[in-house]
Design a protein around this nucleic acid. Sequence first.
DNA 1: TTTTGAGTTGTTCGA
DNA 2: GTCGAACAACTCAAA
Length: 473
Amino acid sequence: MVFPVLLWHRRDLRLQDNAALSEAAQHSLQVVPVFVFDRQILERLDTAPARVAFMLQALQRLQEGYRQLGLTLVWRLGDPGVELQQLATELGAQAVFWNEDVEPFARQRDRRVQESLAAAGIRSFVCQDLMLHPAGEVLTQTGEPYSVFTPFWRRWSSLPKRDPYPVPKGLQPLPNLEEQPLPSLADLGFVCTQEIPAAGEAAAQQLLEDFCGGLRILDYERSRNFPAEEGTSRLSPHLRWGTLGIRQVWQATVEVEAEVRSEEAQASLQTWRQELCWREFYKHVLAHWPHVETGAYRRAFDALAWDNRQDWFQAWCAGETGYPMVDAAMRQLNQTGWMHNRCRMIVASFLTKDLLIDWRWGERYFMQKLVDGDLAANNGGWQWSAGVGTDPKPLRIFNPATQAARYDPEGEYIRRYLPELAGLDTSALLWVGDDAKGAWALQERRACGYPAPIVDHKVQQQEFKRRYQAVQR
DNA sequence: TTTTGAGTTGTTCGA
DNA sequence: GTCGAACAACTCAAA
C-alpha cells in the first residue's frame, strides 16, 4: 500500500535541486505538490505587486514542470494550517514535507501548521534547502553566532558544500487529481505596472549560464560597480523565490574555478561567492537575533532622532530629490522592480543621512517595490546603510555626487532613467555644489523641468553625524 | 583573562 | 587623474 505525501512549496518554486522534493520522494513516490496562497501575506502592506506577479509566473512554470512529470500541482487560498490539514486528510496523506524558512513570521506559521497536522495524526518533515549552511552550522569557536561578516565568511567558505539534489525519478501521480488553473494577479487583488523579469526555472538556468558560463563573472570585481553595465548576475529574484537552488549556484562557481587563470578572475569569483555568503549571513543574523525585524541590531540606535518629513519621503520615493543619481535609481526601482546594488546603497544612505528619515521607512518602501524583496537581505542592507547594524564601525556617508562621478562617469545610467535630462552635457548631470559650475549645472537641469536639490548634502550629513554621535555616547 | 588585529562597498585632501 | 593618508576611535573574534 502506497500512501501519498504532500510537498508544501513556499519559496522553493522549482523541481531541480530541491531538498524537500528529494526527501519526500524517498518517503513515498506518490508526491502531491501543493501551494497555499496565504491571505495574511497577500494582505500585508509591504507585499509588492511585482513580487506576487513574479511568484505567480514561477508557479505557472512549476505547474507546467509537474505536468510534464505527470503530476498535478494543487493550490489553495487561505490559511496554510487549515488548508494543508484538510488536503492531507482528503487525500489520505500521512506526511507533509517542506523547506525551512528563517523569517519570524514563517517560523511561527510553520509551528502552527506542524501542530495542526500533528493533531490530525499527520507527520511534518522540515528540510534544509534555503542555504548552503543553515543557521547553527556556522559558529565561532565558543559556539556563538557570528555578528561580523569577515570571520563568518572565513568559516562559511571553509565548510564543505553539498551537491545539488537530483530531480527524483519514478514519481507517481495520484489518480483523480485534476489540475486547477492558477488564479490571475487580478484574482489575488493586485495590479503590477512594473516591467518584471521572466520567472521560472528555465529563465533562472539561463541567467546562471549567461553569468557563470560566459566571462561576466570573471570581470565581476570591476563591472559590478557600474550600474549602467550588466555586471551583476540578476539572479536575486530567483534566489528569493527558489526558482534556482543554491547548491546548483555553488556548483556553477566550482566549475568556473577550474578554468580560472588570472588573479583578477580569481578575485572576481571569490567576490561573487562572497555575495552568496552575504545572503546567508543576513539570514543567520535574522535567525539568531529576530529583534532586527523591527529595530536596530544595536538597540541603542533605536533612539536615533529622525525628522521623518513626509514631503521629503514622497520626493525620495518618486525620484524627485534633485540628486540625479538618487532619482535615476529610484525610478529604476519603480519601473522595473529591481535596483542595482550600488544604487541601493546610495539611495539608502541618502534617505537616512541626507533626508534624516528612519531607515525602516525605506526598508518598507523597498519591500513594496522589489521583485527580489527578502526580509533578511533587505533589512540587513538597510541597517548597514543606516549604520545601526552588525558592523557599523566606519560611519560611511555616501556623497551622491561623488558616487555618480565615480560609478556613472558618462551619465549613462542617469540618462537611461531620467529621460528628461538625456539631452544634457555629462557635466550638467554630474556637477553639484555652490561654485559657478554647480550653479550652471542646476540651471541646465531646471530648464529641463528637473527639480532643484531638496537638501544640501553638506549640511544634512553634518546634522546626521551629530545625532549619530549623540546616541553613541 | 587579556591582548591584538581587523573590520563590504567612503570621503576628502594634498602630494 | 591617481594615490595614500587621515578621518575617529568601537567592537568582535581569535590568539
